[in-house]
Simulated assay, not measured.
Amino acid sequence: MTEPTPCAKPPGRITDLRLLPWPSPDGKPCYLSSGGAHGWVTRLADTVEERQLATGAEVLVLAREVLDDPMAPYTEVRYAAIRVAECLGDALRVAESRGLRVPAPDTGGDGADRTGGAGSPAPEPGR
């Protein structure tokens, strides 16, 4: 099994490329250039991501059951850890893919965040 490595941002316009939830045949990140369209590969990627996250939630429940048992055999604990690590890798790829598709915040040209999220200046008292 190859160790996951942070994926370098692909060349070109980030918003036009989507990191797919599966690697290329040689284990490298695989991207889809969809131009914003929702074709069948995009729908397949959405379905795979949903299934990966659901599987991760199921594995987490089962792993907690094993870890809650102080008498669980070493092999069961190891197997649970291997499955959790696989699911974590999938979840991190999904998070990275979705993060690459989030538009940059509107800074209005002065570097100030205009989205109202964290980092926005606090309103002055009485206003």
Rank of each mutant, 00 (worst) to 15 (best):
T2V: 14
T2L: 15
P4S: 09
A8R: 12
K9I: 10
P10W: 05
P11A: 10
P11D: 14
G12C: 02
L17H: 13
S24N: 15
P25S: 04
D26W: 12
D26I: 11
K28D: 11
P29F: 05
C30G: 00
Y31V: 01
S33Y: 13
G35C: 00
H38N: 11
G39S: 00
W40D: 08
V41N: 01
R43A: 03
L44A: 07
E49K: 12
R51N: 07
Q52Y: 04
L53S: 04
A57K: 09
L60I: 04
V61H: 12
V61I: 09
V66I: 13
D68N: 15
D69H: 06
P73N: 00
Y74M: 00
T75H: 13
T75F: 12
A80R: 07
A81H: 12
A81I: 07
R83N: 15
V84L: 11
A85P: 06
A85N: 13
E86C: 11
E86N: 15
D90M: 06
A91E: 06
R93K: 07
A95E: 12
A95M: 12
V102G: 01
T107F: 09
G109E: 00
D110F: 03
G111S: 04
G111H: 04
A112T: 14
D113V: 05
D113C: 08
R114Q: 12
T115P: 01
G116L: 10
S120T: 15
P121H: 14
P123D: 02
P123E: 02
E124H: 10
R127Y: 06
R127H: 06
